[in-house]
């Protein structure tokens, strides 16, 4: 920063553009590195945890096929249907406005999750190795 005021506008612009590029490169590299770390460190999931509004409501083994209807909300107006099949969990039906949870691809590895923001619902796949990976989010 020292001496920055003395430089000509054109050099100042170049300095800023260079800083822009460094910023973009650092962010993209950090994202790519975290993605690779996450991708190669996660283990196959063991169980499915259902959380509604931050409270854990149910845990199911990922190995058994099943279909569960999850009702939430103050007047039981929220409805999501969670399907566990072939070691994968997905949401098959939901009455939320955006339907993002239904479009989310099925989750099978520890650390993967399906989220329904309007219904405050999180479906998490957990496994033995799910805890050590958490510090990567920092």
């Amino acid at each position: 920063m020292i001496g920055a005021r003395n430089v000509k506008p054109s050099t100042d612009g170049k300095r800023k553009t260079r800083n822009d590029m460094i910023l973009a490169a650092v962010l993209l590299l950090v994202a790519a590195a975290s993605f690779l770390l996450w991708h190669f460190s996660r283990a196959e999931g063991e169980s499915v945890t259902v959380k509604v509004g931050g409270t854990e409501t149910a845990v199911y083994p990922l190995s058994e096929d099943r279909e569960v209807e999850i009702i939430g909300g103050e007047d039981n107006e929220y409805r999501n249907v969670v399907v566990i099949r072939d070691g994968k969990v997905s949401v098959s039906e939901a009455n939320c406005p955006d339907g993002i949870c239904v479009k989310t691809r099925s989750a099978s590895r520890a650390g993967e999750s399906i989220v329904c923001l309007p219904h405050k619902l999180v479906i998490e796949v957990t496994g033995e190795k799910s805890e050590p990976g958490l510090d990567m989010t920092a």
């Binding site: 994202a31 959380k51 931050g54 650390g111 989220v115 998490e124 958490l134």
Partner: peptide
């Protein structure tokens, strides 16, 4: 959500 796992989305979002 009291779930740290949601933080993984930040990788894509970054």
């Amino acid at each position: 959500f009291e779930s740290v796992q949601i933080g993984y989305y930040m990788i894509v979002l970054a």
